Computed example of a mutant assay.
Amino acid sequence: MSDQTRIVLVGSTGLIGRAVIKEAVGRPSVHLVAVARREVPLPKGARMELLLSDTEHWPDAIAAGRPHTVVIALGTTIKTVGGDKAAFRAVDHDLVLQCAAAAKSAGARQLIVVSSVGAQFASKNFYLSVKGEVEDKLAKLHFDRLDIIRPGILRGHREGPPRRAERWGMLFSPLVDLLLVGPMRKYRSAKAADLAQVILTLAGNKQRGRLVLEHDDFGRILRRG
């Protein structure tokens, strides 16, 4: 279909990536192309392309997807990489920027990136500092449209070894969310499925500019969609 939005998804094996794949089922306006290093379990009814390659060849895979929109949902944790800050930056900084630059070279007019609430280059928190640094550098790529998604704790089933802190966070987040009011609302948790719907609603948006989207923005977008 000529009016389909071609979306290339990078980070398809993670919590948000898998949710995007699931939520894309039954959306005729979306042509989804997932880029990954390994096979991705596909939900029933999924009609999409899956391009497998090592990360060093992801720029070629992104170009092959002929994207209108590229979604980057990459990320690891300091604990996952054993406290190795260089290993963390290799994914959350280097690989994200590599994929974003490839998206620009491939002609994508829109980039949607999952970042984190509190992201700020000047933050004393290493994780948030890296996220903020990446956001600043993404803006300098000058996409027609740049959407930065800043969720709090993500709720949903993750594949692989459980992350203890996240498990407890997901368990208690509905109660904690009630205490987060006013300016603190942006730190409320978010369901992966809801974020996936937000991403798919934003994809293909013709308006230009850079948008930073947090908790209350997600709700407004979902109500519109």
Results as ranks from 00 to 15, higher is better:
residue 18 R to Q: 15
residue 22 K to S: 12
residue 22 K to T: 09
residue 24 A to I: 02
residue 26 G to I: 12
residue 27 R to Y: 03
residue 27 R to E: 01
residue 29 S to K: 14
residue 30 V to M: 01
residue 34 A to Y: 06
residue 34 A to E: 09
residue 39 E to Q: 13
residue 40 V to I: 15
residue 40 V to Q: 07
residue 41 P to C: 09
residue 42 L to A: 12
residue 42 L to N: 01
residue 48 M to I: 13
residue 49 E to Q: 11
residue 53 S to F: 02
residue 53 S to D: 15
residue 56 E to I: 12
residue 57 H to I: 00
residue 57 H to N: 15
residue 58 W to C: 05
residue 59 P to S: 10
residue 59 P to D: 11
residue 60 D to V: 10
residue 61 A to W: 12
residue 64 A to S: 13
residue 65 G to F: 01
residue 67 P to L: 01
residue 69 T to W: 07
residue 76 T to C: 10
residue 77 T to L: 02
residue 78 I to N: 08
residue 78 I to M: 15
residue 80 T to F: 04
residue 80 T to C: 00
residue 84 D to C: 02
residue 88 F to D: 02
residue 89 R to N: 10
residue 90 A to I: 03
residue 91 V to G: 01
residue 92 D to K: 06
residue 93 H to N: 08
residue 94 D to R: 13
residue 95 L to C: 05
residue 99 C to M: 08
residue 99 C to R: 07
residue 100 A to L: 09
residue 100 A to W: 08
residue 102 A to F: 03
residue 105 S to C: 03
residue 108 A to W: 03
residue 112 I to P: 06
residue 114 V to E: 07
residue 117 V to S: 06
residue 119 A to W: 00
residue 123 S to M: 05
residue 124 K to T: 00
residue 125 N to L: 11
residue 126 F to V: 06
residue 126 F to P: 03
residue 131 K to S: 11
residue 134 V to F: 01
residue 137 K to Q: 15
residue 139 A to I: 15
residue 141 L to T: 06
residue 141 L to R: 01
residue 144 D to T: 08
residue 145 R to N: 14
residue 146 L to K: 07
residue 149 I to M: 07
residue 150 R to F: 09
residue 154 L to E: 03
residue 154 L to C: 00
residue 160 G to W: 08
residue 162 P to D: 05
residue 164 R to T: 13
residue 165 A to P: 01
residue 167 R to K: 11
residue 169 G to Q: 07
residue 177 D to L: 09
residue 178 L to S: 11
residue 181 V to A: 06
residue 181 V to D: 01
residue 183 P to G: 09
residue 185 R to W: 08
residue 185 R to T: 13
residue 187 Y to I: 04
residue 187 Y to H: 11
residue 194 D to F: 02
residue 197 Q to C: 11
residue 199 I to Y: 12
residue 200 L to E: 07
residue 203 A to I: 11
residue 204 G to V: 09
residue 205 N to Q: 10
residue 206 K to G: 08
residue 209 G to Y: 03
residue 209 G to S: 04
residue 212 V to Y: 12
residue 215 H to I: 05
residue 216 D to E: 15
residue 217 D to H: 15
residue 218 F to E: 01
residue 220 R to E: 09
residue 223 R to C: 01
residue 223 R to T: 10
residue 225 G to M: 07
